[in-house]
Design a protein around this nucleic acid. Structure first.
Ligand SMILES: [Mn+2]
Ligand SMILES: [Mn+2]
Ligand SMILES: [Zn+2]
Ligand SMILES: [Zn+2]
Lengths: 142, 142
DNA sequence: AACCAATCTGCTAATGATTTTCAATATAGA
DNA sequence: TCTATATTGAAAATCATTAGCAGATTGGTT
């Protein structure tokens, strides 16, 4: 719904940084704004290709890097083989399926604030990883 | 302290699964039991090489996979380029340096238990990732 | 609208991490 | 000790990601 607003911010951020607004960049960010599943670069690429069949994988890699530098998306910590991205940059937690790797946002917040200093680390923020089996994988267990 | 006990469990687990007890396997697990910094495979390899200069990187990769299958070690969720392993398989949390990637165990527990079902996921366990700047990186800030 | 400098893109080659292949070797049990 | 089987080291293969480059786009300027 405020996808338009987010896209506006993106265009603003590009202008501010002297970056050009290209259809590929917009398409990559749009895919990320639409998807709730923390897609890989390959996932994004496949989605963008539907609209721009000649887009290259390298461009998608470059674009997610740019978007990350602009602070518009972030990587999700994960132990799988490829990096997964998240356009939700607000503080939130993740539900991770230990079978298939599906990652979803947790819809509640934890009312816990970490100390600003833990074991000498100057703490910025935290994130909860909740591991379990997703509905799809549960269904497969029959 | 109970390194001996853990090694004993490892040997027991190998016997139980028909796996052979080789010096390389023992050395890899010993390195993991010793280190508190969640090393990469390369880190482990460099350490094992001190004792067995002819060990191969492939063997270390194979061994960590075996150890993981036995449930004796686990991967740490992380967004860096190489996987990091943890011989501490009990529930605990991690402090992660956003500058250098140093990962340490958090020494406290959170008295929070997640619901067994969240958004359809059958929940197993959770882990907290606390992000900040480690003492070493703080010192470098001058 | 045509022009231009700088940025981007697509393609391909290079890299880095991890896995596989396979012949030679080590382990465990008889 | 002998033997079947699992494991190892070395090299090649694979997968994810990055870099290099020539040609195309973009966003101002005339
Ligand atoms: Mn998310
Ligand atoms: Mn740990
Ligand atoms: Zn699943
Ligand atoms: Zn650090």
């Amino acid at each position: 719904m405020d996808r338009k607003k987010k896209l506006g911010q993106f265009i603003e951020a590009c202008r501010h940084s002297g970056l050009k607004i290209t259809p590929q960049r917009v398409a990559v960010y749009e895919v990320l704004l639409t998807r709730e599943d923390h897609p890989t670069v390959e996932d994004i690429y496949n989605e963008v290709k539907k609209k721009y069949p000649f887009v290259s994988l390298a461009t998608v890699y470059r674009t997610v890097e740019t978007l990350e530098e602009l602070g518009l998306i972030r990587k999700v910590a994960y132990w799988g083989s490829s990096v997964r991205y998240d356009a939700n940059t607000s503080d939130h937690h993740h539900l991770i399926c230990v079978q298939c790797g599906a990652i979803r946002d947790v819809e509640f917040c934890l009312d816990w604030t970490p100390p600003t200093n833990i074991q000498g680390y100057r703490v910025h923020k935290y994130s909860l990883h909740i591991y379990g089996v997703c509905p799809v994988c549960q269904a497969k267990e029959n």
